[in-house]
C-alpha cells in the first residue's frame, strides 16, 4: 500500500548499519547525478532493481520505479520543449520545436531523476525509522530532539492519512460528491475537510508530546540508546564499492 513503509526482512541490505544504508543511498544518488550517459543512467536503474530483487524487494523497487517514471515523464516533457540545441527534429508552428539536443538532454535528465531518487526511496523499505534515528544520534551525534521529530513526522503520516479518509467518508455519507470527475470541483470539496483534520491533528500532536514528556523525553542523553549499531566489514565493503562507483562515474561517465 504505502511505498515508504518498512518491509521487514533479514537480507544483506537489511543487516547493514543504518548509517551505511543512508550514506550508500546518497552516494548512489551522487553517482547518478555525476553520470552523463543515458545508457549508464539506465544501467544504474536496472542495477538498483536487481540488487533489490536479490534482497527480496524486487516488487517494491519496480513499483517505486513506475511511480518515479511519472515524475520523470513530467521532467522529460519540460526539458524537451525548453532545450533547443542540435538539429531540429519536429517543428509545429512557432512555439513547438523539438531538437536532437533537447531530446538527449530530456532523456538524460528524466532518467537521472529516477535513478537518483530510487535508492533514497528504497532506504525506507530496508530501514526502520527508529533505527535510522538512533544510529544518527549515536554515531553521527545528531541531537535527539531532531531525530525524534523526524521519526514522529514519519509515524504520523499514516495516522493522518487514515484520519483524512475517515473524514472524507463522513462527508461522502452526507452527500458531498467526491466522485466527481471535475478536478477543480474536487479540490474545492477537499478544502472544508481541512477543518476537522486540523482539529484532530492538533489534538494528536498535543497528546503525543505530553505522552513523550511523561516518559522522560527530556531526560534523554546520547548514551541512553539501548541498541548498538556497530560497523562491520560488510559496511566497510559497501562504502568502498560506492565511493569507487562515485569516482568512476565522475571520471569516466
Amino acid at each position: 500500500m504505502n511505498l515508504l513503509n518498512y518491509v521487514p526482512g533479514n537480507s544483506f541490505l537489511h543487516r547493514l548499519n543504518p548509517i551505511t544504508k543512508l550514506a550508500a543511498a546518497f552516494l548512489y544518488g551522487l553517482a547518478c547525478i555525476l553520470c552523463g550517459s543515458i545508457l549508464m543512467e539506465l544501467g544504474f536503474i536496472v542495477l538498483m532493481i536487481a540488487v533489490c530483487a536479490v534482497a527480496g524487494l524486487g516488487k517494491r523497487a519496480l513499483r517505486l520505479t513506475r511511480n518515479l517514471l511519472i515524475l520523470g515523464l513530467f521532467m522529460f516533457v519540460l526539458q524537451l520543449f525548453f532545450v533547443r540545441t542540435g538539429e531540429a527534429l519536429v517543428q509545429i508552428g512557432e512555439f513547438v520545436l523539438i531538437t536532437t539536443g533537447g531530446l538527449a538532454s530530456a532523456l538524460l535528465l528524466s532518467l537521472r531523476v529516477v535513478a537518483t531518487m530510487l535508492p533514497l526511496m528504497l532506504l525506507f523499505a530496508i530501514t526502520p525509522m527508529n533505527d535510522l534515528c538512533n544510529a544518527l544520534v549515536k554515531k553521527a551525534h545528531l541531537p535527539y530532539r531532531y531525530a525524534f521529530i523526524l521519526t514522529t513526522a514519519f509515524r504520523f503520516v499514516p495516522l493522518f492519512s487514515t484520519e483524512f479518509h475517515e473524514i472524507q467518508d463522513a462527508q461522502k455519507a452526507r452527500g458531498v460528491d467526491f466522485e466527481t470527475k471535475n478536478l477543480f470541483r474536487k479540490i474545492g470539496l477537499v478544502a472544508p475537510l481541512c477543518v476537522p483534520l486540523l482539529v484532530s491533528s492538533l489534538e494528536k500532536v498535543n497528546s503525543s508530546a505530553i505522552s513523550a514528556e511523561m516518559r522522560g523525553f527530556h531526560l534523554r542523553t546520547r548514551q541512553s540508546g539501548y541498541k548498538e549499531y556497530p560497523f562491520t566489514g560488510r559496511d566497510v565493503l559497501i562504502f568502498v564499492i560506492l565511493i569507487s562507483l562515485v569516482v568512476f562515474s565522475a571520471l569516466f561517465l
Binding site: 518498512y6 521519526t151 509515524r155 495516522l159 494528536k204 497528546s207
Partner: peptide, 13 residues
C-alpha cells in the same frame, strides 16, 4: 499514564 488516544501516544513503529 496511559492516554486516551492509543495511536498518538505511541512513539515507535
Amino acid at each position: 499514564e496511559v492516554f486516551q488516544d492509543i495511536d498518538s501516544q505511541m512513539v515507535a513503529s
